[in-house]
Nucleic acid binder design. Structure first.
Lengths: 223, 223
DNA sequence: GTCTATAATCCGATAGAC
DNA sequence: GTCTATCGGATTATAGAC
């Protein structure tokens, strides 16, 4: 069942995407890179959309490889910290791969994400929830909903790497790595002073002890 | 020096961008909406790039209007909290405006951002640094570099709204508002337990008491 | 200032010969 | 399985008449 030519097309498609981005990706360019004419591609792929779906699958393979190395850590904290490092390194070393994980399916000409890709996103998010939960169980992170806490951490990390990759910070990569860690440390320690923290939280959450419903995370990515 | 037709074109351009996004924006569509043929537009605008630059200027006008209302707050904390609310409401009510503030200039066919837009971004970022600094001065936020702390808060907020607007969370808007506040509260209070916080920070920052260089923020947005 | 007409490219996808 | 040829569409932008 192996289709060598299809594999060759996918390889070229990934290279083309990494080189020119989603906007610069076209079936005609892809055909040129493969060394055939454009119609020949349609013998192996139904259309552009299906090619891009395979490219996203490759992006997930790369991404999870970086993340799951964190499981070699021997303590919950080590695993969480290594997962954060892996997230950062992936985003820095492969910004185009990182980008396509968060691109809306409509931008790729899809009505919705294929089910298997949606499932991949859920699995990655579950990985984060598990890393947070075991730290809570050990008393390293404050008790609470691990899903909520993981969203806070994820949003912070995603925001930082997105802003950096878009060039909003004029710093070199090593400086940014230090910033990323320092900012993570501020999140763990808290931005408010001890005296003000309780009051600030109360003002933000309202008087009543709030229990926000857990969101259903559709996938880690791509709505 | 008023050019009424140019104003009309810009109005239609903003409506077209808000309706169809950057990908769906073309000079032909714009001409159709204005009620003229495409070449007529080039009497008033040099090219598409210049039209889009004016659209981004409008986005900044809207954005700063939301933000600067926060200055009506009577205390530093009230001003900071209101700024956060304004940021959230702007991103929720005008996701397309929010989006274009962070789009890379190359995606709009520009080599770089016009100087005045770059300056707008810097001004907005300075606004945030000022909100943080006055809270530090009052002992509400931990002492430190206001620029660093503001980046942590900004990344967190940007990450959350980006993920929500891209549809990664399957929650309604009101639930997300509550999540946004709750997540902000977690950032102020800190994710780690009091017992673990110091150790975690030390492990993240290294043994030596670290002073990360302040990044030069090129503009709040758009590298 | 607006028009018609057009240049010059690009795109995804298909029909049908070989 | 690949080719040539082509359909049908998009785009930015310009030349020149009115």
């Amino acid at each position: 069942m192996s289709d060598l030519q299809r594999d060759r097309i996918l390889t070229c498609a990934c290279e083309l995407y990494l080189k020119d981005g989603l906007d610069g990706f076209s079936m005609r360019k892809l055909a040129r890179d493969v060394g055939v004419t454009a119609p020949a591609l349609y013998r192996h792929y139904q259309n552009k959309e299906h090619v891009l779906a395979d490219v996203v699958r490759e992006a997930f393979r790369e991404f999870t490889a970086y993340l799951y190395r964190a499981l070699e850590g021997r303590t919950p904290w080590e695993r969480l910290a290594r997962a954060g490092e892996g997230y950062l390194e992936f985003a820095l070393e492969h910004p185009r791969w990182y980008e396509i994980l968060f691109i809306a399916p409509e931008q790729m000409g899809m009505a919705a994400l294929p089910d298997d890709l949606e499932a991949q996103g859920c699995a990655v998010h579950q990985f984060w929830v598990d890393r947070v939960r075991e730290c809570m169980d050990q008393g390293l992170l404050r008790q609470g909903d691990p899903l909520q806490a993981s969203l806070t951490m994820w949003a912070h990390a995603h925001g930082l790497v997105t802003l950096f990759n878009h060039g909003a910070f004029q710093v070199d990569v090593d400086t940014f790595r230090a910033q990323f860690r320092a900012s993570g440390a501020r999140m763990l320690m808290g931005l408010a002073t001890d005296e003000f923290a309780a009051e600030a939280v109360e003002q933000l959450m309202g008087a009543e002890p709030v229990e926000v419903d857990s969101p259903t995370v559709k996938g880690m990515m791509q709505g």
